[in-house]
């Protein structure tokens, strides 16, 4: 008998398919051939290891990290949560990168031509590391909704993009955090690319009054669950 380390895999029940025609950009970019199951060798069991040296002092505060001549416009919010693996264990030292539109629904990116103002004091980019309990927190401005050209009168719900590096490269995740009660969620083909209701709703943050700071900012809680839990098997 040998002892072997494996990692939990993506559960497709709660994940999008590559081809989702309601999101038209998937049509020419979705692989069509069947995926080949990848064995978990040391190439997969490993991944980059990050620490506080990889994070700048204001990386976690998007309301301050791009200030030029004043505070950014919009509703200041606190976003906090835990990064867990799918066995429920905290993931410490997970690196989260976040990016988002400004309060008017405009990205700083040059190809964003939405007729809404840029904010000279906001770039909408930050990063943060989880602590020993898997907790993270950052401060930002609540992003606005914005139009896109996927279909007639298409608008993206308010969202913050998240990129996450967990304990190994197989837990790599890029996702989006949405806000509770947004009427655009029901109309959004990207959000609705997840067929399973429980998984889909995991992408909606919850309003957290215990995180809200009086006279200063509203709080939202957003927990993130990664695949790639370590499992030991006996063969």
């Amino acid at each position: 008998m040998t002892i072997k380390q494996l990692l939990s895999r993506i559960n497709w029940k709660g994940q999008p398919k590559y081809l989702h025609p309601a999101y038209t950009s998937t049509v020419k970019r979705a692989p069509q051939q069947p995926l080949i199951p990848l064995p978990h060798t040391l190439s997969e069991l490993t991944g980059p290891v990050y620490g506080t040296g990889d994070i700048g002092p204001l990386d976690h505060d998007l309301s301050r990290n791009a200030v030029r001549n004043g505070q950014p416009i919009g509703e200041r919010i606190i976003v906090t949560g835990r990064v867990l693996d799918d066995s429920g264990r905290a993931v410490p030292n997970a690196l989260l990168e976040v990016w988002q539109a400004n309060a008017c629904g405009r990205y700083i990116h040059k190809v964003d031509q939405h007729d809404a103002p840029l904010d000279p004091n906001f770039t909408g980019a930050g990063r943060v590391l989880t602590n020993a309990n898997g907790e993270y927190q950052f401060i930002t401005i609540k992003p606005g909704a914005y139009p896109w050209r996927n279909h007639s009168n298409a608008w993206r719900p308010q969202h913050i993009h998240f990129s996450v590096f967990g304990a190994n490269i197989m837990s790599r995740l890029v996702t989006q955090m949405y806000f509770p009660g947004d009427p655009l969620l029901a109309l959004d083909p990207i959000y609705n690319s997840i067929a399973d209701t429980e998984a889909r709703e995991r992408m909606i943050s919850s309003y957290a009054h215990d995180v809200t700071q009086p006279e200063w900012a509203l709080g939202y809680r957003f927990d993130i669950v990664l695949c790639g839990s370590k499992m030991t098997v006996f063969e």
Binding site: Q15, D86, T175, A199
Partner: peptide, 10 residues
């Protein structure tokens, strides 16, 4: 196993 957070496009 708890439900994984789904992937979304960059």
């Amino acid at each position: 196993m708890i439900t994984q957070t789904p992937s979304q496009t960059v």
